[in-house]
Amino acid sequence: MSDERHPITEIHAWHDGRLPDDERLAVSTHLKGCAACRSELEGLRALDAGLQELEQPEHSLGLEAMLRARLDREDARRLDRRRLRRLLGATALGATIVLAALLARRGQEPDWPALAATAHAELERGVPRLDVEESAPQVLQQRLRARGATVRVLDLAMMGFQVIGGSVREVNRHRIALVVYRNADGRILLCEMFAGGDIRLPPPLEERRSGGIDFSVYDRVGRTAVFWREGEVLCALVSGGRREEVVALAIAKAKVPGSALKTR
């Protein structure tokens, strides 16, 4: 766009404060001696000022009132959907617990990875409500332990997951602590800790070993569940993300120094 006589592109950049220091002096010097380029610069200034002075368009209905009304409708819709999900979720959770109890009575071990994956699916749907909603890992840990859970709540913020809360459940005489995380994309990561060393797991899809810990990897209801033991506590990490990512998170979580848990 520029030529030797009129450095128009550079004058635009100069006007926007975007010209490198070493070129500013040359353009300033040129402007002093070139009426055409001074005219260009004056035109730019006038144009920018004119655009800034354009009137704010009026909205006849009242813009903010219209938007608030739209948000009200959205809130009502979300509330209806959430109630429906809770109802369906409570039904599904109840059925899962009844099935687990029936299996226990028949001396059969529940499919713990399937239960964990089901719990994750329910959390993604927004049900059931968490016992404790807390974003500070240490505080959540104290509050879940106060409810009788054997739990260690890790801060996974460095991995992009913020803790949002947790719950304590009793299934087949095993107390299970659930710690729920969410990342910026809204993806849920569920960490479960089962008290008691007598839990038997089904054969895994694959097994990994890292840092002296054995990891059992399962694929259930479209989710990856990774199980490992820390002393008498069985830990699980469940997510709908890529399998390798979930396994890597589990390995990173299990490797944290001082991670061995003691049953309360």
């Binding site: 006589r5 009129h6 260009e40 004056e42 035109g43 004119g50 354009l54």
Partner: peptide, 18 residues
């Protein structure tokens, strides 16, 4: 660039024209 001499009669740059 030879013809960049703008007619800067800004008094006629009404908002409507902009």
């Amino acid at each position: 660039p030879d013809s960049i001499e703008w007619d800067l009669r800004r008094d006629v740059w009404t908002r409507a024209r902009i």
